Amino acid sequence: MAIPASLARFCRLSGRTLVSLPGRNRRQIPVSARRWYTSRSPVNNLQFRLDERTAHSSLDLFKKDTGVIYRMLGLDPSHVQDNPERFRDWAVVFGDEKITGGSHYWEVTVKKSQEFRLGVAEALMSRDDCVGTNSSSWVFGYAQRKWFAMTNNKIVPVTLVGKPDRVGILLDYEAGLLGLVDVQKPKVIHTIKAQFRGPLCPAFGLWDGELLTHSGLEQPAGLK
Rank of each mutant, 00 (worst) to 15 (best):
Arg127Glu: 00
Thr100Asp: 09
Asp76Val: 00
Arg53Ser: 03
Asn152Gln: 10
Arg34Glu: 14
Trp90Pro: 02
Arg86Thr: 00
Tyr37Ser: 12
Leu75Asp: 09
Tyr70Ser: 05
Asp76Trp: 04
Leu124Ala: 15
Arg12His: 15
Phe140Asn: 03
Tyr70His: 11
Arg27Leu: 14
Leu50His: 01
Phe87Cys: 05
Phe48Ala: 02
Val93Arg: 00
Leu75Ala: 13
Gly162Ile: 08
Lys193Asn: 10
Arg127Leu: 04
Leu178Ala: 05
Asp89Ala: 12
Gln144Ile: 10
Trp207Gln: 07
Ala149Ser: 15
Ile99Asp: 02
Leu178Ser: 03
Ile155Tyr: 10
His104Cys: 07
Thr54Phe: 01
Ala123His: 05
Thr133Ile: 12
Gly74Pro: 03
Thr213Tyr: 03
Arg24Cys: 14
Tyr173Met: 05
Cys130Asn: 09
Ala149Gln: 08
His190Cys: 03
Lys193Leu: 09
Lys224Asn: 13
Arg71Cys: 10
Ser41Ile: 01
His190Ala: 04
Val181Gly: 02
Asp60His: 14
Ser215Arg: 06
Arg71Val: 08
Val188Pro: 02
Ser136Leu: 09
Thr191Met: 09
Asn45Ala: 14
Lys187Glu: 09
Gln195Asn: 14
Thr109Asp: 15
Arg9Asn: 11
Lys154Ile: 15
Gly67Asn: 05
Glu107Arg: 08
His104Ser: 07
Cys130Ala: 15
Asn134Gln: 12
Trp106Thr: 04
Val181Arg: 00
Arg26Val: 11
Ala8Arg: 10
Gly216Trp: 08
Leu124Gln: 11
Leu75Cys: 10
Gln184Ala: 13
Leu75Gly: 06
Ala221Tyr: 10
Tyr105Pro: 03
Leu217Cys: 08
Ser39Gly: 15
Lys63Val: 15
Gln219Glu: 11
Ile189Lys: 00
Gln28Cys: 11
Gln184Cys: 11
Pro164Asn: 07
Gln81Lys: 12
Asn25Phe: 13
Gln195Glu: 15
His79Gly: 06
Val80Pro: 05
Met72Ser: 14
Tyr105Leu: 02
